[in-house]
Design a protein around this nucleic acid. Structure first.
Lengths: 193, 193
DNA sequence: CTTTGAAACTAACAAGTGTTAGTCAATTAA
DNA sequence: TTAATTGACTAACACTTGTTAGTTTCAAAG
């Protein structure tokens, strides 16, 4: 895996936007090319296949999540602080890559077999790490003793689909988003629990 | 819109499963036909187009959500009870239509224009109704005064992606799912809030 | 200048797409 | 028994798909 050229990054950026709108399968190489004002064949001077474009869109972002949660998990901090930082990680990466987040959720199954395996490995690792954090929180009596898988997926469902509505509705600042989202996810929305 | 035939329901059922696996655009009419052990052309004895199949998959389920939240909202019950019932509504409909739920999230933009408009109307109505419920909860001091759009989408993100993991992980009963999910969403996961 | 390299282009391909037309066998209604 | 309907079939259509081959343009390096 060599360094990515500027043009490759442009392709990945344009493709991510289109993938988000219509999904990987509904976007043609001619669509991507037209958005760059070139012809489809010209794309192949920079990439080797359509699946390669998808990998360009996904794999860096997936690696950022892997690296992010690894760092957080290794830190010597309380479980609740780890969770707060994980929420912030998702917010930061979503703001930086809103379009690619859609493909991360919906298009990853169209990766070529080798890339697909690397992707699912990272995804499994991420979920497993988060589950370990949740479990230790339950053992420390810091987290309510609910089903731990349920907690993991309840958190991830919201965090992974942040891209769907950040920026669309009442444009709250990144800071208020983080504070309110952390409160909603960790402390709940109903009073006097 | 006439009554749906048995064969139409079979097509919708098979298509929903395939749409979930690969997405609408990546599923061909020949794929759907092969899953039913007939030829693609034979499908057109029962449906008029591929987009029609998608409408068959989506529109009934969308109507169920609309009807469900309308009934709940009209009931003379506390806000927290409304929220509990909305959570149950999502659980019930997800268990009954796990595959179609995926298309409801990811494939609706491929509907033909008229169906698309009806769909987005219902979706907007659903979100607006939920937001009104949340807002009245905040005004009654029952719900924490967080950003109301954030609360709506935090809840819906989890509820709409239930299909992704129900049945996959530690097979908890429908009852425990409902109880724990309600607790996690409404009361939060961290103690002593 | 000349050469080289990158990056665009045109043209074309084989395969797959949704869909239509026309046919035929079997079940149902008269 | 006959007529009509249903629902499968084969064959084909016009179009789009990802991709390759070969060519041209043009700026940078020698």
């Amino acid at each position: 895996m060599t360094e990515r050229s500027d043009r490759q990054n442009e392709i990945a950026s344009v493709a991510a936007r289109l993938f988000r709108q219509k999904g990987y399968a509904a976007v043609s190489m001619r669509d991507i090319a037209a958005s760059m004002h070139i012809k489809a064949a010209s794309l192949y001077n920079h990439i080797t296949s359509k699946q390669d474009v998808l990998a360009l869109v996904l794999m860096d972002l997936a690696a950022s999540f892997t690296q992010g949660i690894t760092t957080i998990d290794a830190a010597d901090i309380a479980v609740s602080e780890k969770l707060s930082r994980i929420i912030k990680l998702h917010i930061d990466l979503t703001i930086q890559n809103p379009h690619a987040m859609a493909s991360l959720n919906n298009d990853w199954m169209h990766l070529a077999p080798e890339a697909l395996e690397r992707f699912t490995e990272q995804r499994d690792f991420y979920e497993e790490t988060l589950r370990r954090i949740i479990r230790s929180g339950i053992e420390e009596r810091i987290i309510h003793p609910l089903n731990e898988d349920l907690i993991v997926f309840s958190l991830l469902s919201t965090l992974r689909t942040l891209y769907l509505w950040y920026g669309r509705k009442s444009n709250l600042s990144e800071q208020k988003l983080r504070v309110d989202l952390t409160a909603a996810l960790l402390n709940g929305i109903v009073k006097n629990s």
